[in-house]
Amino acid sequence: MTRYLLRRIVQSLIVILGVSIIAFFLQHIIPGGEARALLGPRATQAQIDAFNQQNGLNQPVYVQYFDYLDHLVHGNLGRSYKLNEPVTSVLRQDMPKSILLVGSALILSILIALPVGVAQAVRRNRTLDYVGTGLSFFLYSMPTFWAGQIVILIFAEKLNLFPAEAPQGSTLGQILSQPSGLVLPIITLALITYASFSRYMRSSAIEALAQDWIRTAKAKGLSNKAILFRHMLRNALIPIATLVGLSLPGVFTAGLVTEQVFNFPGTGLDFYNAAVSRDFPLLLGIILIVSVATVIGNLLADIAYAVLDPRVRYS
């Protein structure tokens, strides 16, 4: 197991390195260059030359990348052009708020999707299954920004139960001091992610219930509750463990849109503002962080295999 984990960690580092290379070189194929994109079409050549000189953009691209990689190893993700502060400071301030939003929505969606998926599998081709399937397809096809607008219209404007805007604050404590403002963003993100989890859980549970050892458990006279929770559920959760790891990029992407809709002061809103203002160091820093989160999620999913299924052993 230890050797496997070490090998997976090395592979993960290689993937992160590849992502950094691709993301870095993509910003250097912008028409007119990074300086022209940031300073605008009216910038003079003298201003562009000064900008390139100040930011080291007049050096060969490979030299710029190795300089960036050296800074990255030392925890320096560059400096935001628009905010005029280190990218690490921006992420240190806003990343915990995004983790709170994305993590809460992910946990809520899983807690709802697992029992609903199992219930649909147990009552396959019945009314509950049809209703759950239709609801899942509806939510799965719903754009995140539209879901946010619908939630605001119903719960904020019509019913006046929760504020339409997310809590505003520079720290996680200030965000948590206004819990009512977190409800609608979390609900929006949870609805989008719930759909895929429930469908996978239903399919996995149906497959598990059709196995021979389920029939053997029934023949032994075990109760339905014991069969579901002691035998079926653990095996049915294996695909869900993979889905959770692979869904992290999608959840972060949906979180980006959700933060913009609700004006939530997190990393997603930072990414949106950086894309609009062409703040490339901040964009690159957020891409790397999300990539690291994705790689870690996949690694945790691999570890979960051995925990959920005793037949899985890594050597």
Rank of each mutant, 00 (worst) to 15 (best):
R42K: 12
D309P: 03
T242P: 00
R202G: 03
I22R: 02
A190L: 01
A119F: 15
H231T: 08
A43G: 13
F252L: 14
P163L: 09
F271K: 00
G250K: 06
T242Q: 06
A254G: 15
N52F: 04
T144Y: 00
A50L: 13
K82D: 02
G268R: 06
A105M: 02
L72K: 02
G297S: 08
V87I: 11
V73G: 01
A195D: 11
S141C: 09
G103K: 02
S12W: 08
V151N: 03
S136H: 12
Q45N: 15
Q54V: 01
K97R: 15
K225N: 08
S196F: 05
L299C: 00
L308D: 05
R215F: 14
F137V: 09
I286M: 07
L228E: 14
A306K: 04
E85N: 00
G56M: 03
T193E: 10
P31K: 13
N224L: 07
A226E: 14
A304G: 02
I152S: 01
Y81R: 08
I110L: 15
I99E: 01
A241P: 02
V261H: 04
L237P: 08
A37R: 06
A304S: 15
F66H: 06
P31N: 12
I238R: 11
W213P: 00
G285H: 03
L101T: 10
S291T: 11
A304H: 07
R234Y: 11
G78A: 05
D302S: 09
L284M: 15
A219G: 11
E259C: 01
P179K: 14
F138M: 14
F24C: 04
L189C: 06
E259D: 02
F264C: 03
F271C: 00
G297Y: 04
K218E: 07
I9E: 14
D49N: 13
L135W: 01
T127F: 15
D309M: 00
A301I: 05
L38Q: 03
Q47H: 03
L83K: 12
G181W: 05
F162G: 04
D129I: 11
